[in-house]
Amino acid sequence: MHELSLYGSIPVGNHDHLLQQLAGLTAMQPQAVHEIHVVFKGRQALGLEKVSGTVGGESAGTQQQQQDLQRLRTMLQSGVFYVQLIGSLLPRDNKRSTVTRQGSGENSIGWENQEVEWTFEFKDTPEAAKQSASTRLVSRVKFNQGDMVTFLDMFGFEYVKRYVVEGQRFYHQDTSLFLHRVRRLPAPRDNVSATDISDLPPWAKLPLLDASGTYILQAMVEIVDGNTQELRDRATGQLLALRDTLKSEVTLAQPDRLALDTRVPITRRP
């Protein structure tokens, strides 16, 4: 699946007005989103030096062996990525809900008894070609049950950090509009899983990543077959039309490609 996106930033003072405008444009009420993002870093494969030293050398063996080694070399050099586990806090029935609106306009969420649905998300680095929207491969797989952090550790990904995202989501034609901002989360205590949310401070007490309170608007279209140019053109057309519609409120643009780079920098091993 490919994701085509445009991004814009919205000062906190314009947030409510933009919410109203998006509600009018999409003819829907905003859908509240509260997500926990747990970031993992892929481990670099060991042994690339062995291949480098062997290919083309005297001990390279037959042509078939050389081809196999060359293929391994290509695989080992193919890059390692950051991935995320994204936990969506499920809305609960009114009796049990602890989501309350306070005078400050902040939502405060009690974590206890929250049900979380976890999704494994891989996002590639945006494509390098000159395009009107940031385009990249995206893969999301729901992780249903099991010890996900331990599994990911054995699968080759180590825990890095975690944070939460709060916001509102709208849908317009094929476009998903996600108005959101990020809050920091404390690191898990020793021997506590990064996906354990039972002992976290209330949502409103979590510090904002951007202290000014600025929101980000992501306008996004997902297409199943990213190799079909017609689908890409149609998705891009929808995003550009939306950009023009919202231009008085927010400037939607394509960010620097490498600012969205998900590759782990290669470090030379001692």
Binding site: K142, N144, G146, D147, M148, D153, M154
Partner: peptide, 10 residues
């Protein structure tokens, strides 16, 4: 080992 489940469709 460590095991998780995912939807069969995925």
């Amino acid at each position: 080992g460590s095991m998780i489940t995912i939807p069969p469709s995925a």
